[in-house]
Each structure stands twice: as C-alpha cells, then as structure tokens.
C-alpha cells in the first residue's frame, strides 16, 4: 500500500533505481555504439559517394573519349560514303556506257550474221548455178564428142 502510494508520488525503491540506472547505462552504451556506427556509416557513405563521384568522373571522361572517337569514325564513314557514292556514280555511268557498247556490238553481230547468212545463201545459189553450167557444159562436150565420133565413123564408112 505504502509502496503504491510512494510510487504515486514518484518515489521508487533503491532496487528499482538500480535497475533503472542499469537500464540507463545499457541504453547509453547502446547509444554510444549506435552513434559510432552511425559515424562509421556516414563515413562509409561519404566514401561511397566519393567513389561514385570518381566513377562518374571517369565515365564522363570515357564518354567524351567515345563521343570523340564516334565523331571521328562518323566523319570517316561520311567521307567514305561520299567517295563510294561518287565511285558508284562513275561505275554506273561506265556500266551504262558498256551496256550501250554491248548493245551496239550485238546489233553489229546480228547484222554480220545476217550478211553471212545472205552471203552463204548467195554462195549456195551461185555454186548450184555454177554446177548447172558445169553439167550443161559436160552435156555439150559429150554431145560434141559423140557427134565427132559418129561423123568420123560415117566418113570412114562411106
């Protein structure tokens, strides 16, 4: 009853006080440790931030390098493309020229073939006409020989 009353007036027993003091001491220790850890964490965080800043710095530098390289290569590619384009145009022109030459050669070949065919036909006709003349001459020569023999035989017989 008394204890309850004293407690009501904010009084505690010695034991309770010791317990409370002990709890307080533990709490303080834990607080100190936590503060230490917090300091360590802050230091680590700072360190991490620094590392990230360093990384970012490196990446930025590398990016600049790459951009520069990309720009250089793009310039080279543009230059090569322009050159290729010019070359392509030249080749296309050359090709068109050769196509035209080939077509002209094909036309000439066709014309020559037609001329050869016509010449061969003329040759065949001429050869046959010559053969006909040859046969006719043979006939005339044969007839002359036969008539000559008959005439001589007639004369010697008569």
């Amino acid at each position: 009853m008394l204890r309850r009353l004293l407690r009501g007036f904010g009084f505690v027993t010695r034991g309770e006080l010791h317990v409370a003091e002990e709890k307080l001491r533990v709490m303080r220790q834990r607080l100190d440790k936590t503060s230490e850890r917090l300091a360590e964490a802050a230091a680590a965080s700072d360190e991490l931030h620094q590392a990230r800043r360093d990384d970012a710095q490196r990446y930025k530098a590398r990016l600049a390098e790459l951009e520069s390289e990309h720009e250089r290569r793009a310039a080279c590619a543009r230059e090569a493309a322009a050159e290729a384009s010019q070359r392509f145009a030249r080749l296309e022109q050359e090709l068109r020229k050769r196509d035209a030459e080939l077509e002209a050669a094909a036309r000439e070949e066709t014309r020559l073939e037609q001329r050869v065919a016509a010449a061969m036909q003329e040759l065949r006709v001429a050869r046959e006409a010559l053969a006909a003349i040859e046969v006719k001459l043979d006939i005339l020569e044969g007839a002359a020989n036969v008539l000559d023999i008959r005439t001589r035989a007639g004369r010697s017989g008569g």
Partner: peptide, 21 residues
C-alpha cells in the same frame, strides 16, 4: 535429144545438207 539443157534445173527445196564442194 542428145542435148536438152532446159532439163538441167536447180533443186527447188533442200533438206539440211547442201552439195559437197
């Protein structure tokens, strides 16, 4: 007749082969 030159005529049509030069 001994001579009948009109009877010597050229071939009208030919196969793939011609004469033999």
């Amino acid at each position: 007749p001994l001579v009948d030159l009109a009877g010597v005529v050229l071939p009208a049509e030919r196969g793939s082969a011609g004469g033999d030069p």
